[in-house]
Amino acid sequence: MSTNSYAGVDLALDGEGFLQDPAQWTPQIGEAIAAANGIPVLTDRHWIVLHFMRNTFLSTGDAPSIRGLGKESGVPVKELYQLFPKGPAKLAAKICGIPKPHGCI
């Protein structure tokens, strides 16, 4: 566990940089985390994925699988990998301030 400051806010992070408390998150924090992870600008397409992912987590307690993201977010799998190159499920979860997804799929 560590703390880091994004968008001027001190945040508790786990060892891999995921927010410990999703309630601390703001879109500005999301933009700062994205920039620190190689995505300088979040487009509307990124935000579709990020909102879908965060809402799914907040309502079900679980992050969607990559399959669920591709089927239900409105952004197909191919594009997910273009938007979030080093693993969409993990990276999008980090940016939208939810814990690291635990599924194998």
Binding site: I66, Y81, P85, G87, A89, K90, C104, I105
Partner: peptide, 11 residues
């Protein structure tokens, strides 16, 4: 298939 997909998910 699960291992291949899991690999891609990890980049």
């Amino acid at each position: 298939l699960i291992m291949a997909n899991g690999a891609r998910m990890e980049g």
